[in-house]
Structures are given as structure tokens and as C-alpha cells.
Design a protein around this nucleic acid. Structure first.
Length: 563
RNA sequence: UGGCGGAUCGUCUAAUGGCAGGAUAGAGGAUUCUGACUCCUCCAGUCUAGGUUCGAGUCCUAGUCCGCCAGCCA
């Protein structure tokens, strides 16, 4: 897939181009992707990754760091650190040697804190969390100044050092910036800079009992790394004055600029790590990488390609507008990518037995089919035609209007990559259901259309004896409403109970016994399918990443609605 | 009754005072050994009301609606 179609300039790229033109920061461009390692990355993070790494790659000398914003050990874990790196790499981005951790800056941050204390711009506050909330005021009323706000520099320095030395219990004191308790911006009402937490950190162990807050750590980490453009989502807009306040009041080596954009919302799914975590914990999905999850690992397991996700991020663009992107757009990106590249195969999901009465019982005929109908370079594959074959149950009707382009009693269809067959008889059970078909084949129709008559259509099939039996999992959206965030109550109780359908008696063409593990196949007429890691050599398991566009299903639905 | 931000086809997104364009979805058609892909055609939009201007999606004024903010989360 061509990654460069529709470059899609946006307001952030415009700002950056202008900054570069004005030789701001000496003409340097340096961004960063700053995840907190407290969960798996999702498609919303992909948007940020594509922006940050993308914008850096577009300019000569542009760089993008990977930085873990690991300032809250209570929620963080190395499991997430590892998965995040894997996901960013898989998406196709490279931070080279520039992998950083906010926790690496804890000593520097401490020095910054002391500098603020020395300047009379930070103080140790003994208010409890509840008292602090009370003193903070409300959205419409100013807050009140803490009784500890006027401590001397010496006292503050002493207290802060003793906080760090572990002399005080958890939560008993915080270091606060001394700004303005009457600010209409709540973030400026003497925000907390450091809190006491005796929690083992996944990188620094028990070295620290005080940890910096996001606001204090983030902008200063940016400055320490020489970041020029700090791109983040809209909910941090209110934090920008504070971000700038730290840069203005401390001696920092660089002057990064924070720019905010809208986070991604996708129809029929949730995006908050809290909610995704709840789904995992409640067991309604099989893990962070469940193919129904909007996580990078879930999309990967489902069969999405990095290219399709990057293309999606390109198409949705970057803006500050509220948005909720249609799920169909994501699916379309995958289809477009896979249509060009996915090898073709045949698989029957709901089998119906067909006996070719004029084909000898012991004969096995080898057929050749292209791996891709529009791309000869992808080569060919071998199929086996036998007296007994399997077709899709829904590809046969005893009678149907001529709009139905499949097999009917007495009618002819072509078996994809094979012969034309005519249905002579439907064999029924005592209950009256069709359990098998008796058909005859026309030996003159291999790679040749019959003369003087037109077949109804083309259906897929597999040999009943020369095939492998496997499992196929079909997926529907995790939620049945386009905006699940608006649902009330426990998120785990709201998931679509039919979000996964397991078909255990699927018959696949022989080549699928040992499928490629890096890429999806197109099962012709059904969609794109990707081998699931639950597969064993004896029992392949495939996930349907996305169906093909299904015009017939749409017609049938309309007719059902009209009738 | 506080602060910050946002509003353009159904959806996402361009247009930086000068032809409202693209993508996707939708409708119709062509083609077809995938009811796929591809190709062609069509439908469809500037939140409201005033104002400035030769000219406004863009600037001004007043509204409306939506989002975020009262963690020692990020």
C-alpha cells in the first residue's frame, strides 16, 4: 500500500512548518511519544504515534523520542513497557537509541523542585487530600490559600528533603507550586508537584518514596530532551499555562511548545484504558489482544496490517473538532490494503456435502489456481477436485429468483477455479432439511465457459477428502451502540453478546494446514482471515479480520425490509 | 453563574477574504470464474441572527449547541 497517498497537511504540521521557517529552536524539530505504561496501546495511540513519528520523519533531521511517562508506579508495570515497544515497532516506527523514561529524570526533577522552593515558588503543604480539595474551591468560586503557604524557604527545603528521605508517612504532605489560588484555571491553584508514595517502581525499585506528578514531570522531561513540539490531546489544553509556568520559572535547556489535538473516538468501541482494562478484568474478552479489542495487539491478532492502520490515521486527519469516526473507514483501509496483497484461498464455513455423480469415486484431479487473480507474480496454488466436495450451505436454494446467482435445483454454477456443475437432486433428512446434493459436472468447462448457455454464478468449494478441518471465528462490534461511552452502568455488562461467533466445522483448502503467520489470506467470497495463535498443526484457527463488501447481503436485507 | 476549546456533505477532513474540494458512506450503471476488486455517473455541507466588504466558511457583534477542567491519575 502506498503510504504517501494524500499527505494530508493539518494545523499542527502548518504550525511546525512555520516554526521551522522562522528558525525557532535553531530550526530543529523534535517530538516525542509519551505513553504511560499502565495499559496496552490502542488505535487512539496509533493516531498520536503516526503524528509524532510521522511529522519528525517528514523533515530532514527531525527526531521523535519514545518516552515512558512512568511517574505513577501504582498503576504501571514492565508488561506494559514491553508491549508498548512491540506495538510501536510493529506499527513501523523507530526511536533508534532514543528510548527514555521520566523516571530517569527523577534526580533532575528533584533539583528543579528545590530551585522552585529556593525561589519561593513552591512549598510543602500538610493539608490532607480532602482538605486540599476543600481549599481548592470550585469551578465558580476561588480557592483559599493553604495555611502552610507562607512557610520560609529554609523550612520548605528542610521539609522537602525529609519527604524525600522517607521521614513522613504516605500522603501526609505534598510539595505544591505557589501560583494563584484564585485562578479561574483550576490547574493553577497551587498544583501538587510531589507526593509521598511507598510503592515499588518498576524501574527505580524502592529508591524513591516521593514521585512527581504528571504536570511537573512532563514539560520538564520535554525540556530536558530538547523537545521542540509537545503534541498531546485536547484535555491537556487547560494544563498548557502550567506547562509554560514551569518553563518560565526554571532554568531549562529548551523551550518546547505544547499543541493539542482531538483524541480519536471510534464507533462501536471504547477507547479509555480504564474501560479496556475493565473488559479484560471482567473476562468478557480474552485479554488485551482479543481480536475484538481496539488495542494495537488486538488489531494485529485480528489480522490488521500496520499499513492499514497508518493509512487510517492518515485519512482521519488531525484537528481540534469533536469527532467519532465510522468503523467502516477502518475496515475499508484494511480491505484496500489486503485486496492488493493477500493471497487467495477457499474455505467452506458451513459445509453442505455435494456428490458429483459423473466423477469417478477414486479419482483425484489436481487443479491450479492463481494465488491472486490480478497479480500473477504471486504464483499459483494446487487444489484437488474429487467426487465429494463441500460448498457453503447458503450457496444452495431449491428454488430462487434469478437474482440469486448461486446453485439451485436444476441450475448450473461454476465452482471457483474448477468446473461447472448442475444440481440434479437435493437429498433430504427425515426432517426435510437438505443434507446433501447430487450434481453432475461438465468436464469441458475447466478454464472455458460453456457455449450457448450462461451459468448463474460462481461459488467456492473444497474437496471433502482433500481438505483440512479447522475453526473460524467471526467478529461483530464489541458494543451494539455506536457510542458505548454514553452507556450507563458497568461497561463489562454492556458488551454485545454476539461479538464473537465460533465456527468449529470449517473445511479449508489443503494449503491452509500450514498458513503463513505474518499476513492475512482472502478466503474468496468471505473476507480476510488471519491465523490465530490458538492454532495447532492439527487444528488451524482463523480470525476473520474483515468481511468482503457484501452487495448481496445488502440487497437481501432491503428485500426483507420491503417485504 | 468560572475558565479553556470546538462547530463545514450521514461520517472524517481541506479551503488562511476570491470557483466550498477530497475521502468514506449512500444511490445508479459497466465489467467480472470472488455479488470482491476496478471503472463511470449521481446524491449530499459552511450552527443561528445581525454587521463589515465588490466579495465572508473565513473578519466583527450577539446567541445556540457540544466537549474538557474542582486526583496527591495521565
Amino acid at each position: 500500500m502506498n503510504d504517501t497517498t494524500t499527505p494530508g497537511a493539518d494545523f499542527i504540521r502548518d504550525i511546525i512548518a512555520q516554526d521551522l521557517a522562522e528558525r525557532l529552536n535553531g530550526g530543529r524539530l523534535h517530538t516525542r511519544f509519551p505513553p504511560e505504561p499502565n495499559g496496552y496501546l490502542h488505535i487512539g495511540h496509533a493516531k498520536s504515534i503516526c503524528l509524532n513519528f510521522g511529522v519528525a520523519a517528514e523533515h530532514p533531521g527531525g527526531l521523535c523520542n519514545l518516552r515512558f511517562d512512568d511517574t505513577n508506579p501504582e498503576k504501571e508495570d514492565v508488561e506494559y513497557v514491553d508491549s508498548i515497544q512491540e506495538d510501536v515497532r510493529w506499527l513501523g516506527f523507530d526511536w533508534e537509541e532514543r528510548i527514555y523514561y521520566a523516571s530517569d529524570y527523577f534526580p533532575s526533577l528533584c533539583r528543579f523542585a528545590e530551585a522552585l522552593i529556593l525561589a519561593g515558588k513552591a512549598y510543602v503543604c500538610d493539608l490532607s487530600a480532602a482538605e486540599m480539595r476543600d481549599y481548592r474551591g470550585t469551578l465558580t468560586e476561588p480557592g483559599r490559600e493553604s495555611p502552610y503557604r507562607e512557610r520560609t524557604v529554609e523550612e520548605n527545603l528542610d521539609l522537602f528533603r525529609r519527604m524525600r528521605a522517607g521521614e513522613f508517612p504516605d500522603g501526609s504532605r505534598v510539595l505544591r507550586a505557589r501560583i494563584d489560588m484564585a485562578s479561574p484555571n483550576m490547574n493553577m491553584r497551587d498544583p501538587a508537584l510531589y507526593r509521598i508514595r511507598r510503592v515499588t517502581h518498576h524501574r527505580t525499585g524502592d529508591d524513591w518514596v516521593i514521585y512527581p506528578t504528571y504536570d511537573f514531570a512532563h514539560g520538564l522531561s520535554d525540556a530536558l530532551e530538547g523537545i521542540t513540539h509537545s503534541l498531546c490531546t485536547l484535555e491537556f489544553e487547560d494544563h498548557r499555562p502550567l506547562y509554560d509556568w514551569f518553563l518560565d520559572n526554571l532554568e531549562v535547556p529548551a523551550r518546547p511548545r505544547q499543541i493539542e489535538f482531538s483524541r480519536l473516538s471510534l464507533e462501536y468501541t471504547v477507547m479509555s484504558k480504564r474501560k479496556l482494562n475493565a473488559l479484560v478484568r471482567a473476562g468478557v474478552v480474552r485479554g488485551w489482544d482479543d481480536p475484538r479489542m481496539p488495542t494495537i495487539s488486538g488489531l494485529r491478532r485480528r489480522g490488521f496490517t500496520p499499513e492499514s492502520i497508518r493509512q487510517f490515521c492518515r485519512l482521519i486527519g488531525i484537528s481540534k473538532s469533536p469527532n467519532r469516526v465510522e468503523y467502516a473507514l477502518l475496515e475499508n483501509c484494511l480491505r484496500t490494503d489486503l485486496d492488493a496483497r493477500a493471497p487467495r484461498a477457499m474455505a467452506v464455513l458451513n459445509p453442505l456435502r455435494v456428490v458429483i455423480v459423473n466423477f469417478p469415486e477414486d479419482r483425484v484431479e489436481e487443479l491450479t489456481a492463481p494465488a491472486h487473480p490480478q497479480n500473477e507474480a504471486m504464483g499459483t496454488r494446487r487444489l484437488f477436485f474429487t467426487r465429494e466436495i463441500l460448498i457453503e450451505q447458503e450457496d444452495f436454494r431449491e428454488s430462487a429468483s434469478k437474482e440469486y446467482k448461486r446453485l439451485v435445483l436444476g441450475g448450473e454454477v461454476r465452482l471457483r477455479n474448477g468446473y461447472v456443475i448442475r444440481c440434479l437432486e437435493a437429498v433430504k433428512s427425515d426432517a426435510g432439511e437438505v443434507i446433501a446434493l447430487r450434481c453432475e459436472y461438465d468436464p469441458a468447462t475447466l478454464n472455458v465457459n460453456p457455449v450457448g448457455r450462461k451459468v448463474r454464478g460462481v461459488i467456492h468449494w473444497v474437496s471433502a477428502s482433500r481438505c483440512v478441518v479447522g475453526e473460524v471465528r467471526l467478529y461483530a462490534p464489541l458494543f451494539h451502540v455506536p457510542e458505548p461511552d454514553a452507556l450507563k452502568g458497568e461497561i463489562a455488562e454492556q458488551v454485545n453478546p454476539d461479538s464473537m461467533t465460533v465456527l468449529a466445522d470449517c473445511h479449508l483448502e489443503p494449503g491452509l494446514a500450514d498458513p503463513r503467520r505474518d499476513f492475512a489470506y482472502q478466503f474468496e467470497r468471505l473476507g480476510y482471515f488471519f491465523r490465530d495463535p490458538d492454532s495447532t498443526p492439527e487444528h488451524p484457527v482463523f480470525n476473520r479480520a474483515v468481511s468482503l463488501r457484501d452487495t448481496w447481503a445488502k440487497i437481501e436485507k432491503q428485500q426483507a425490509g420491503a417485504g
